[in-house]
């Protein structure tokens, strides 16, 4: 047996604990090879420390802890019916996603209402807008003449008639 084979066997034995039967060939090798002997000792000691809390005896109160602990908060009978736990688990995430979408829509809307009028006013002649406005106002009042003068006359006349009444 060479050292590489011995190392692999040592790793198997260290991790398998006492499950494996003693290996005479490996033992013979570690007797004559100080490096492998040291490797075995260090690995074993390290394993013992690293996995010291593996349990060999069951906890008699485990079942009670399971259903009286904070984790469950339910009895075995209550637990058997499928709960809405998966739904609740995803609910905060879904709510956050929905809120983000709504916020995005709202911010986008705000942005467009700020940008569009500015662009719109810059491209349209204000004189034309005024003329359109006066024309539609005259049409509402059933005036055939849609000039400033005609509108003024109409408004002055109606104001006087209101006063006399």
């Amino acid at each position: 047996m060479n050292c590489a084979e011995a190392e692999r066997l040592i790793i198997d034995r260290v991790f398998s604990g006492s499950v494996l039967q003693p290996d005479d060939e490996l033992n013979a090798h570690t007797v004559v090879c100080a490096a492998c002997r040291s490797f075995h000792q260090k690995c074993s000691a390290d394993y013992e420390t690293s996995f010291a809390d593996r349990k060999r005896l069951p906890d008699p109160d485990f079942y009670d802890k399971l259903f009286t602990g904070e984790k469950s908060g339910k009895t075995h009978k209550e637990l058997k019916s499928h709960s809405v736990a998966p739904l609740l688990r995803f609910a905060p995430g879904l709510s956050a996603a929905a809120a983000a979408v709504l916020l995005g829509v709202w911010l986008g809307g705000r942005l467009f209402t700020t940008i569009i009028p500015a662009n719109a006013s810059s491209g349209v002649n204000p004189e034309l807008l005024r003329a359109d406005y006066i024309q539609s106002y005259a049409a509402d009042l059933n005036l055939t003449d849609a000039t400033d003068m005609a509108l003024e006359n109409y408004l002055n006349f109606n104001a006087e008639s209101d006063d006399t009444e």
């Binding site: 349990k55 005896l57 069951p58 008699p60 485990f62 079942y63 075995h76 009978k77 058997k80």
Partner: peptide, 21 residues
């Protein structure tokens, strides 16, 4: 699955070491 506590306890006792380890 039916919520029998005796079976539940037996199940937990039998497999707790396996699961914990």
């Amino acid at each position: 699955a039916e919520g029998d506590p005796v079976s539940g306890r037996r199940f937990a006792d039998q497999y707790q070491l396996l699961v914990y380890n």
